[in-house]
Simulated scan of single mutants.
Amino acid sequence: MNAPNPNSTASRGRNLGVATACVVFVCGMVGMSFAAVPLYRLFCQVTGYGGTTQRVEQMSDVVLDRKINVTFDANVSSGLNWDFRAVDKKVNPKIGETVEIRYEAVNKSDKPVTGEAVFNVTPGEAGAYFNKVQCFCFTKTTLQPGEKLEMPVVFFVDPAIVDAEETKDIGTITLSYTFYPKDDEAPVAALATGEDKVQPKL
Rank of each mutant, 00 (worst) to 15 (best):
A3Q: 15
N7G: 14
A10D: 14
R14Q: 13
N15F: 11
G28W: 10
G28L: 05
M29L: 12
M29R: 10
V30K: 02
G31R: 11
M32C: 03
V37L: 08
P38H: 02
P38A: 12
L39P: 00
L39N: 03
L42T: 04
G51D: 08
G51Q: 11
T52R: 06
T53L: 10
R55F: 15
E57Q: 14
V62D: 12
V62K: 14
V62C: 12
V62L: 13
V70Q: 04
F72I: 10
N75P: 01
S77R: 06
L80G: 06
N81G: 01
W82C: 07
F84I: 02
K90N: 14
G96W: 07
G96I: 04
V106F: 02
N107I: 06
K108Q: 14
D110K: 04
K111H: 02
K111T: 07
V113F: 03
T114Q: 01
G115K: 00
V118F: 05
V118N: 05
V121L: 02
A126C: 13
K132E: 15
T141F: 09
T142N: 05
L143C: 07
P145D: 01
G146P: 03
L149T: 03
F155C: 02
F156T: 05
V157I: 06
E166H: 11
I170G: 12
G171E: 15
T172Q: 14
T172A: 09
L175N: 08
Y177N: 13
D183G: 09
D183Q: 05
A190I: 04
L191H: 11
G194Y: 04
E195Y: 06
K197H: 10
K197F: 06
K201C: 08
